[in-house]
Design a protein around this nucleic acid. Structure first.
Length: 436
RNA sequence: GCCUGGGUAGUAUAGCCAGGUUAGUAUACCGGCCUGUCGAGCCGGUGACCCGGGUUCAAAUCCCGGCCCAGGCGCCA
């Protein structure tokens, strides 16, 4: 191997011999001394050479170094550590594994490069330790969530990404050629998850991508995003779904608070687990709340972005919570498969989770009664034939069920305080970007 | 898709409204100096007006078209 230790693992004892490897971060010459900073994913080490004492060959190598060259270094831990950047080593041997030209972007933050240019050079941009911190946090969120799901009886499954019929909702789908026939990339795995409830799988989750062919030019939309989608059976109503969702959500955040102090510090963010239960606001009361805040929304209509922000503010002031549920959306603005409130059917048992002013998920209770589903297909003005592949199954027994899909990038974005969702995707897909 | 703003060295910006000598600055890069730097410092150097058309004696600057970006809205995860 080209190394014996990652940089953070370099032992403290003077005289210890190690071999590390990483990118050259900086080279400085001060008087009779030469400093080389080498960084790997765990941290930075400073190589210190005294020009008067160092080996000629070694000096030659050091003088030839450029920042971002990839090197492997054999070195010794010195008696006295004076470097403030991290570990210090006296190098004995430096092997250059790869040479770097001048970087096309700034990764230090001194002349910070704009996001779009950074994304052109993403693999290099991702060398910025702040970016690594973002993905470590994302990884920890997912770990916290999947461990919670696994330990609460949920089974991970994978439903198809390629689907044969355009789905129910209004979102545009990417069309693909499927052996000469039209097929589509799913815009949500939700209908197939419901079919697994019909199958009696009972409690499932899926982490996977969805695609939207919407030319959305906003800091919070992607054409390709990933969700943690959960579906469960034998619920009494949508409140059972909310209780699962909030525990899952907190399990992810808790894990980050517990394990990612260093990354939280690198990013300079603040993070607290929300208290449970997460407050719930319902239609039509929401109209009154907004009205009291000076915003009038017509009865039966959805709230817009401004309304969403006002509700976030309301919840923060009244409940001191950064997260809240919106429940009982107007059926008019929701797809055919949601369950309406039987004795007040203009409202649906349809739930969004909002966190730090951002919509993280949609979900709720689904309609499992065949006649009701067909009635709602008609109410939405859909051709029953196009959804028959889905609806037919409900003639043969379906448990009451519900679920939700938490947008992983949205969640990550809110947690790390990113101003653009593309920051939290290694290689984001947006209307004008599909490379690299 | 609509609205607003923008595109100047590798990167980030000033200049544009009131068109006119070598297009300023920071950083990166190259060279030099400096007995411990840690966003090191100091000196010197290389390096740029998005593309196409138009107005004009003269265009980075004004006009038209295109491409691209940011933000807001819509839609949503």
């Amino acid at each position: 191997m080209k190394r014996t230790h990652e940089i953070a693992e370099i032992p403290e004892e003077p005289g210890a011999n190690v071999r590390i490897a990483g990118f050259v971060e900086n080279i400085k010459e001060v008087g009779r001394l030469l400093f080389v900073w080498v960084r790997d994913r765990t941290g930075t080490a400073q190589l210190t050479l005294k020009k008067t004492e160092a080996d000629e060959e070694l000096l030659k190598v050091v003088r030839s170094l450029n920042t971002h060259d990839v090197v492997s270094v054999v070195g010794v831990v010195p008696d006295r550590r004076e470097a403030k950047v991290g570990m210090e080593l006296v190098p004995k041997e430096i092997e250059v594994l790869s040479r770097a030209e001048r970087l096309p972007i700034d990764v230090t933050g001194i002349a910070a490069t704009q996001l779009d240019t950074r994304l052109d050079w993403r693999a290099i941009d991702l060398r910025n330790p702040k970016n690594l911190a973002v993905f470590r946090i994302q990884n920890t969120l997912i770990k916290g969530m999947t461990e919670w799901l696994d330990s609460h009886g949920f089974m991970q499954v994978f439903t198809p990404c390629i689907i044969g019929a355009p789905s129910e909702s209004g979102a545009e789908m990417f069309e693909i050629d499927y052996f000469g026939k039209k097929a589509y990339l799913r815009q949500d795995p939700q209908l197939h998850r419901q079919l697994l409830m019909v199958a009696g799988f009972d409690r499932i989750y899926e982490i996977g991508p969805s695609w939207r062919a919407e030319p959305s030019h906003t800091p919070r939309h992607l054409c390709e995003h990933r969700g943690c989608a959960v579906e469960l059976s034998y619920i009494s109503d949508e409140l059972d779904v909310m209780r699962v969702e909030e525990q899952l959500f907190v399990a992810g955040l808790k894990r980050v608070v517990e394990e990612r102090n260093r990354e939280i510090e690198i990013l300079g963010i603040e993070l607290e687990e929300p208290n449970l239960p997460i407050p719930e606001l319902r239609f039509p009361e929401i109209y009154e709340i907004l009205s009291s805040m000076g915003k009038e929304v017509k009865f039966g209509e959805d709230v817009d972005r401004e309304g969403e922000r006002l509700l976030s503010q309301y919840v923060l002031e009244k409940y001191n919570s950064e997260a809240f549920f919106i429940n009982r959306f107007p059926f008019a603005v929701k797809p055919f498969y949601v369950m309406r409130v039987d004795d007040d059917p203009i409202w649906a048992r349809s739930v969004d989770l909002i966190y730090r002013g951002l919509e993280l998920s949609s979900g709720g209770q689904r309609e499992h009664r065949y006649e009701k589903i067909m009635e709602q297909v008609r109410l939405k003005g859909m051709n029953p034939e196009t959804v028959k592949w889905f609806t037919e199954f409900f003639r043969y027994g379906a448990p009451p069920h519900g679920g939700f899909n938490i947008g992983i990038e949205r969640l990550t974005m809110a947690v790390v305080g990113a101003s653009n969702i593309r920051e939290v995707v290694p290689f984001p897909r947006a209307p004008e970007r599909y490379m690299p």
